[in-house]
Amino acid sequence: MTDLTHLNALQTRRRVRNQKISAGMRYVILFAVGLVMLYPLIWLVGASFKTNSEIFSSPGFIPAEPTLEGYRQGWETSTPFTFGRFFWNSFLIILPKTIGTAISCTLVAYGFARFDFPFKKILFGSVIAILLLPNVVTRIPQYILFRDLGWLDSFLPLWVPSAMAGDAFFVFMLVQFLRSIPPDMEEAARVDGCNSLQTLIYIVVPMLAPALISVCLFQFMWTMNDFLGPLIYLSSVDKYPVSLALKLSIDTTEAFEWNRILAMSVLTITPALIVFFVAQRYFIEGISAGGVKG
């Protein structure tokens, strides 16, 4: 009898110990992975304050003689414009595109989630088809179309397709979100005499707000990072967004002025990082809700 209790106690102790070990293992793995993942970013920030000779000489991230030269010279760029101009251009691309996306995707998602109409299944199927359609097939004719419209070297090719609810992912995400909201409030509004547009503006949009914030944040982030679109459509340097300007500065100065490039890289990712940390709840929920590229 005592032997049995003893054995049980031993087993329990062993199990607890095993659990402790595997919990410890998990933390070790997570910390190691986290360190490996984040160290390049930490190093990037540190290296942007280093002198050129130090960048490739030590793996540490703390600069021996911190200097702002990289930022000062990088900001000036080798073009007639400063990086401020390129940030302004990015902003000019992002703002209308994001607003256009939010408005058009809300209208379309409302249409899909709350109305019945002919060809609805086919049209919703097309949303999924666009979602899976590789852009690479449509890019060349789109370029020719924008050229014929005289839109090359302007922001229009970057704004207009998104303002026509062209980013199917957002339409899909909003439709899913709307379907999870029971339409009771909207029915009440209709009984009180609201037409469907008023219902949309006063009832649906406030309820959609969290999902709409996710949409705007993702669109901001993707547009900030977009490289191929501006590369194809913009040719004059005075219209370059930061992504193109960074590529330009690699081409012109990389052979020796590394700290300039690293400093401007840090500035380029800063807006995205700030937005992410301020609003990360919306990002995580956004991807969990719909699944996201990236």
């Binding site: 984040l38 970013l41 982030m221 990082l273």
Partner: peptide, 10 residues
């Protein structure tokens, strides 16, 4: 965090 920044040219 890397997914947020990963597409970036930086």
């Amino acid at each position: 965090v890397p997914s947020i920044l990963g597409g970036s040219i930086a």
